[in-house]
């Protein structure tokens, strides 16, 4: 079957199977699945507020999904999106609380640039270690995640701490906050979603239309052939990690500038790790990643509404888990099929 058709079919069928299995589970706990799914949809798209909420939840997931997905396309497994997001947001927050004198037109890009550069630099450490010593990026990015987490928690409970209660940094200057696209009650939907979509377009162009994309993909697929073709393997591993990290840093920036307006203890809340599942469901394709992020974002937003009618919100975890399992299983099946073909 055509590769492109498969790339769309696999996640869609996986979602359908996941819904079918969850239907059985909802029936088993004695609830009406139609009511449950109705509540889920109502909770995520049923009102202006619900839609805004879904978009807010989706934005960082698109960006971390792109970060991990870009890494996969370039042959690196960046598990460190979490740490890169935290570091990007933390450092940007530190600067951005002092940008009051700058106009938004300068302050916003500058804050974004800081977060992306920090994310890129932090990821590049793992890239550099891999290129120079062969240290696997899975191991080093996990280690860097812990460093980032504890460093951030030290900063907001120590040097940067303001107020009492939840550890947090000072609020960033007004001029650094992203413009609000839609305001429903207390919920402000910022322009972060536009940034995320621009990032997806950027990744598509970079991967498919540029020599840089050609080189990072070549190194990811076959480093020997890439080197033979005059492509520097080490340079491109560092570059791939840095671009991946910049996207994760951007996720930190949108959360900081569009949602919390300060660095909070749980700013990332595992969204860097969610990026791995989203990249997987989205088949590392920028458009696919947008859809996958919306799916997960909507499920999470709608789950509260579902809880109200007595279906545990953890149902969405089940759906999410089954989707990931099936998409991953498809890879396993395909790998086995390719092996078999080779053996013949």
């Amino acid at each position: 079957m055509n590769k492109k058709v498969m790339a769309i079919l696999v996640p869609v069928v996986s979602v359908l199977i996941a819904l079918a299995i969850s239907t059985v589970i909802i029936l088993l706990i004695g609830k009406n699945p139609i009511d449950a799914y109705g509540a889920l949809i109502k909770g995520s798209f049923g009102s202006k507020q619900a839609i805004a909420d879904t978009v807010i939840k989706t934005t960082p997931l698109i960006l971390t999904g792109l970060a991990v997905g870009f890494g996969f396309r370039a042959g690196v497994f960046n598990i460190g999106a979490e740490g890169q997001m935290v570091m990007g947001a933390l450092i940007a927050a530190t600067f951005a609380s002092n940008f009051g004198s700058l106009p938004p037109l300068l302050a916003i890009p500058l804050t974004i640039l800081i977060a992306m550069s920090v994310g890129a630099g932090y990821a590049a450490i793992a890239g550099f270690l891999k290129a120079k010593t062969g240290a696997h990026e899975v191991v080093t990015t996990i280690m860097l995640n812990w460093i980032a987490t504890y460093f951030a928690s030290y900063m907001v409970t120590g040097p940067l701490k303001v107020g009492s209660g939840t550890p947090k940094s000072p609020e960033i200057s007004d001029s650094c906050q992203l413009p609000v696209l839609m305001k429903v009650g207390a919920i402000e939907m910022s322009a972060g979603i536009i940034i995320a979509i621009i990032a997806a377009i950027f990744m598509y162009i970079l991967l498919n239309k540029t020599t840089t994309g050609y080189e990072v993909k070549a190194v990811g697929f076959n480093p020997y052939a890439a080197e033979y073709g005059g492509i520097s393997v080490g340079k491109n591993i560092v570059l791939a990690m840095a671009i991946s990290g910049a996207l994760a840093g951007l996720a930190g920036a949108t959360e900081l500038m569009g949602v919390h307006h300060r660095f909070l203890g749980e700013l990332s809340g595992g969204k860097g790790f969610d990026g791995i599942s989203i990249a997987l469901i989205g088949q590392n394709n920028p458009i696919g990643i947008i859809f996958a992020a919306f799916l997960i974002g909507a499920l999470r937003t709608g789950s509260n509404e579902m809880q109200f009618i007595g279906v545990p919100k953890h149902m969405v975890m089940i759906i999410q888990g089954i989707v990931i399992f099936l998409v991953a299983a498809d890879r396993i099946v395909r790998t086995i099929m390719i092996r078999k073909r080779v053996e013949k």
Partner: peptide, 17 residues
């Protein structure tokens, strides 16, 4: 090992280098 990138289309292999 060196000559081809199996996952690349022919046209990308043809311009390698």
């Amino acid at each position: 090992k060196h000559g081809l990138i199996e996952e690349f289309e022919a046209y990308y292999n043809i311009i390698l280098g």
